[in-house]
Structures are given as C-alpha cells and as structure tokens.
Design a binder for these strands. Structure first.
Lengths: 222, 222
DNA sequence: AAATATTTTTAGGCTTGTCTAAAAATAAAA
DNA sequence: TTTTATTTTTAGACAAGCCTAAAAATATTT
C-alpha cells in the first residue's frame, strides 16, 4: 500500500516544507526551502521535482510548493518520532533539553511503526516534547493548545512556561540558568516601554528578560 | 582527530568483514563479502578500494582483505551499539529476541558517543545481548567466555543456554516455543548416533532436538 | 604443463543528492 | 511600460553505491 521508498533526504525536505508552511503556507518557495535545508536553490528545485513525481508535494514551477496528503502524513510522522525520541532522551537518558536535537534528528529516520508505538508507551504517551511542542498521535492528529506569547502578559500577571519558539542550545541553556524550564512559574513585575524588556520574578529571585527572550517564550496565563 | 566521515554503507562493509574474519580471518575474499552484503562482487571490489583509500582496511588485490586498527575500532563500536540497542529493545520496550535485529541494524548507525554511553548505563551495562553475544566495552575490549556447543554434551549432562549461532527469527521462535530462551536449563537424556538428534528434558517436559538445532545452540555445562 | 574453471577486477552505466554557472521567468523600479 | 533586479530553473559535473558484461588473474584439472 504505502510502502513506497522514501529516503532520509526526501524526509528531511518534507519536514522542512512542513516547518516553513507552519508559519506561512504561502512562503514555501525554492529559496526559503534551500535556506532551511542548507543547500542551493538548484538542489531544492531538483528535489521538488522528485517529490512531485512521487506525489508527496504539489509543486508549481516558480509558484512554490505544498505538501500532498501523503507528504503531510510522512512529515507529521517524522515530527512525531523526533519528539518522542526527545522525550526519551530527556526523561530516560537524562539529557538536558538543549542536548537532544541532533540525536533526535537521526533517530527520527528509524523505520518501524511498532518501534514508535512501543517507545510512545514506554515513555508514557506524552503529549508534549521537552520544549513544549505538541506530539501528534499515531493518526497524525494534533492537540491544539492555548499558549500565549510572554510579551502579551500584563504587569502583575503570572504565567507558567509552556514552550519556546527558539530551540537553539544557546537560548535553552540561558533559560536554564535563569531557572526557566518548562513548567516554571514566573510573574511579570514591570515591562519597560522603551525596549520591551521585562522585570520578572522567578520563584524567590528577580531577573530582567530582554525583548528577544520575551518573544521566544510561551506561557499559560495563571 | 578521528572525525573522518564514514557512511553507513562503509560501516556495514566493515562489520561484514569483521563477521567473516571472526570465523576465519583468511576467508575475507571479495565473493564472500559480496554474499554477506547481498551485493555483487564488483560492488565489493569498489568498496574495498574506497575503504583502503581511507586506511580502514588492508586490501591486496585478489588476495583478500583485513581490517586496519581504525577499521576494527569502527566495526567493534558498531557491534557494541547494535547489541546495546538490542538489549534496550528487549528489556525496556518488551520486544522478543527474534524481533529486534532489523531495528538494531538501523539504530547501530546513530552517531554520538554520549548517547551510547548513557544508553549503556540506562540498561544496566549488560555484558551480553539478548542472543547471548558479548557486548564489547567502550574501549573495544571483549569479554571472553567459555561456552560449549550443545552437541558436545554427553548423555546425562545438564546445561544452561548461553547463546545461539543462528540468529534467524525462525530458529529463535522455534526455540522460544520449546521453552529454550537464554538462561533456560536442559538435560541431555540421549543422543541418537544415526542422526545426532538429541532427546532432552526441559523443565518438566521432554523434546527432541535435531542435529541442526543442536549445532546452533551454546550451553554452559552444569 | 596446458587447458579449463573459478574468482576478481575493470569498464561503462544508472540513480541520488549535491554543486556552480548560465538561462529563463517573475517581480520591482524607474 | 520598459528596464533592472531578484528568484527560479536548467544544464552540465561530480561522488557514492550500486549494477551487468567483459577482461584479467588465480586456481584446478587433466
């Protein structure tokens, strides 16, 4: 049925298309895709033709591309596997949330439905990965969740960290140093109008978060 | 230092060379390697030239090949990872010993020393995999172990299953049905001279093992 | 030792996934 | 609207891994 052979490279392109489309479905253009993949525009065009031949994307020359039903299924499953492995690496092997991306990037390509499902059970069927990103279920269904950008918090409001928009080790490590892991509670004491920096209380102590940090933090308002 | 890029295909050839050499170091010839890899002799020759260029093997045209120091290190580490993942799959995810080979075949190529070592700790630093094969340590050291072929047992002797020489799912499943897992105890009641078949007692009940089964079973004599 | 058989290597091709340079299409500016 | 700039595609190459068919080397028979 569905056993057409997909290479890791093809999977990675599908995932990149998914990622770009997530923010703006109209922005999946050759250059953006090449940038996301770290390849040349020529290579991206090349791959788009292959993916189109395999009916994994709908591709119109010069116009951009979108995932087909089948392509979307593959990309979603890839993200599912990536995030399940991340949970495993953090919860079971004790890695920090900024250390797991490269491993998960490899592990997501391991084939075998049974393995994925048993892994899911073993780690307790988590709905979110260590960065707060949702994990689609085996049918590709996403759990929608209401989270707010930290910058929308008003003075005096409290919130719980539910996710990050920047997954770079540098940002994650910095948050860790501030005591801001997933599930951490913080209170916005004051926001400086001039530079959108935020004075916050994290447990017993205070800190100042720059606008850049604020932009990349999601919270659930308490 | 040691970060020269090795592809999965190259790793697989190194592992195949190791495997053939294990039984007979002089038998690592092009045809044997091609057979082991399921490729043509021409492809094997091709790869041997590449591996030779990378100093991973010592290759003499028409004469056969052997692993270099570096090649041996890579092959050993690959086997280490393969067997550690097998233990994980059986002990933690609950797979049967005949189900894990294909998954481990993929997982062994995951790069990252830290991952391997944390996995090793997580599963309790096992010395043997689910088939009784030894797991080399992080330095590539092998634990030597005394095990005997079942066929060397004399009537009346008892033994504990310590390993198998045939890893095919068919054989492993058959053993499972007989109640002959790793660590199982059995007693040789009688061996038929004509066909080397063996009447055995396994716990409370009796069974007859063909010569073929007997050849592929290792035991520790009690 | 010469003839025959087997094994191994070479030669030439194909696909995937990449590249650079040039051409073509689209978008923006004058 | 015509020119200029940008984006995208095409053309031609290359390395990795595989193939088949033919040639060369080694091993076996007679």
């Amino acid at each position: 049925m569905n056993a057409l052979l997909i290479t890791s490279a093809e999977e990675n392109y599908l995932k990149a298309i998914f990622k770009i489309a997530e923010k703006d479905p109209g922005a999946v253009l050759t250059n953006a895709l090449a940038a996301e993949m770290g390849t040349s525009a020529a290579s991206a065009t090349d791959m788009l033709k292959r993916l189109s031949d395999k009916k994994l994307v709908v591709y119109e020359k010069y116009r951009g591309v979108k995932l087909s039903e089948a392509g979307n299924r593959i990309a979603t499953n890839l993200i599912r596997k990536h995030r399940l492995w991340e949970v495993f690496l953090v919860d079971k092997l004790g890695f920090a949330w900024d250390e797991v991306h490269d491993f998960a990037e490899q592990l997501e390509h391991i084939q075998g439905e049974q393995l994925t499902e048993r892994l899911d059970d073993f780690i307790g069927n988590p709905r979110f990965d260590p960065h707060g990103d949702p994990i689609p279920d085996a049918q590709g269904k996403w759990l929608r969740r209401t989270q707010t950008r930290f910058l929308t918090l008003a003075s005096g409001q409290r919130g719980i960290i539910t996710g990050v928009d920047d997954h770079s080790p540098g940002f994650l490590q910095y948050l860790g140093e501030l005591g801001l892991g997933l599930g951490a509670e913080l209170e916005l004491l004051e926001r400086t109008a001039y530079d959108q920096s935020s004075k916050v209380r994290i447990g017993a102590h205070h800190a100042v978060l720059s606008e850049k940090v604020g932009q990349n933090l999601f919270v659930r308002i308490l």
